[in-house]
Amino acid sequence: MCSSIGIGKKGWSFHHDAPAFVHLMRLNAFSSSLLPLWPALLFLGVFFLAPLLMVVGMSLASRGTYGGVEWALTLSNYLRLADPLYLGIYLRSLVMAGITTLVCAILGFPLAYTIARAPQRWQTILIIMILIPFWTNFLVRTYAWIFILRADGLLNTLLQGIGLIAEPLPLLYTDGAVFVGLVYGYLPFMVLPLIIAIERIPSALEEAARDLYASTWVIFRRVIIPLAKPGIIAGCVLVFIPAVGAFITPYLLGGGRRLMLGTLIQQEMLVARDWPFGAALSVLLMVLVLLTLILTRRYARWDGL
């Protein structure tokens, strides 16, 4: 039931060359310690991997005359992806996600540095303060911005109240609103890996650099940032991926017409009911995500998250 035999680094039932599945098959008395992995593996195989494969399958089908699905192999959905109408939406998604990532990095770095180098007691409190929004209801956090930005919202009322503007500004349902929502939503995703990365840099290195006549700016540019790079990249990936596939933020803050990839997929799936095309869009997003993960795999550091 539990992995007890040969747990050490020198476990014997596992040779270096053969792929894991061979060992998964070989459930003899001494390798039974792989057994506990099976429920999780089976569950995600059935309810995660299989659904993803079905999306791929669906993307090759075509839409029937009455809105159903016809299982005839076709690439037409993928050809439709190149429609300039949709190209604009992908571009918007990429640009919005890119800028969000950049802004999160620029805003998050000083915050992460401050936390990483704070005295122990403060550090714990501050990390918890970053973790709480990380885990609290994303929908509600986005809704808070509707409450602030809408025509009769907090900000407009305030500005009108102090007489700065006569008419309410159109703040909600703009790219700006979506952008603020994305940064607000994903900033903690950037800060946490950054804190871990910066904390790992011995402060003696900064002192050594200072001793060798480096200014604060040079220390950051030449010591901290290069050493924190794995964390910076991990943070960027953690912000970019959900941002490029964001749904709640563009849906609530961008309004119906300012589509991004996430909202487009939802619209095709649930509103237009064109499942094959929605599936093709999903495959596109999936490829984008996997590419990001694979390209950054070498440089990012995920442990400790």
């Binding site: 309810f47 999306v55 991926i241 596939g245 996430g262 997929i265 939802q266 799936m269 995500v289």
Partner: peptide
């Protein structure tokens, strides 16, 4: 944990 939630939602719905 890594993929956008929309993907997970769509895949499960289709499934």
């Amino acid at each position: 944990l890594m993929i956008p939630e929309v993907l997970l939602g769509v895949a499960l719905l289709l499934f």
